[in-house]
Design a protein around this nucleic acid. Sequence first.
DNA 1: TGTTTATATGCAAATAGTTCGCACAGTATT
DNA 2: AATACTGTGCGAACTATTTGCATATAAACA
Lengths: 142, 142
Amino acid sequence: MAIYSKDELINMVKGAGLRVTDHRLLVLEYLAKVKQPVTVYELVEDLRKKENIDQATVYRNLSSLHEAGLLRRLDFNHGHAHYELETGHASHQLVCNNCETIEKIEGISIDDTVKKMLKKSKKFKHTTTHSMEIYGLCKTCA
Amino acid sequence: MAIYSKDELINMVKGAGLRVTDHRLLVLEYLAKVKQPVTVYELVEDLRKKENIDQATVYRNLSSLHEAGLLRRLDFNHGHAHYELETGHASHQLVCNNCETIEKIEGISIDDTVKKMLKKSKKFKHTTTHSMEIYGLCKTCA
DNA sequence: TGTTTATATGCAAATAGTTCGCACAGTATT
DNA sequence: AATACTGTGCGAACTATTTGCATATAAACA
């Protein structure tokens, strides 16, 4: 079900030079299962149903994993960050300007567009990974 | 220099059903001049050099103008919002994952990509305007 | 033009998301 | 098993943003 097995996740953490702790794995496993960008709030609430884990710990793990390149951090102008597993593929989503609806769209490549942008850029030479957020109004709000 | 004249801005405010106030125009004029996404902090600091305007007023005007569709609100994962004038054209920028560098890239169209995304979407039928943020590391941080 | 009504503003206080300091616990290294 | 360094919980701090309330101003109307 999840994109990665527990062993794979452990190796990813080790490979990133981070310690393997229960809490860190909980966060990673959760994100490997949901496959969607989730808010820190959702993450904390859900993890707390089963395990005893502090908010600060979740935040710190999200930061360390993000810095290590294992997570992607997304912001949809909703006032709180979203995180998802860094898969190597770009992440593209439609975001509602009115409510908090987001929809992740798979199977779209904008590599050519990114190349064009880099060609025009003065401050950037390459991009690591990329994500694209397209804003509009969802069917309910339209 | 600015994209719109003062009169044009006034008409835009009226057309949006909002009252024309000095403070509201100050905010709009500022954004019409800079042509780049700016933080609320920069806006407040700069406006205060010449006029007496409260932070809360700036926030409230940014909100009302954004709701009216005259402004675009952008977030680059830096913990504070950026605003720019809504031009009708899409806004695309490269964003550094490490520092606060952003670079607006002009002359790129992703209309076809957006169409493709909408075709795959279940929750969205159309998008109003769109913006794209591509994350990477700027030359300095790379 | 003067009056009325709804919206804007300033100020201070509240809120929300996130970060930090510190003491303690757990992981990895030798 | 001993050591050193990193992670964790708790509470407090911080930063961006929002809100309540009294006053001021803009637009609508007489």
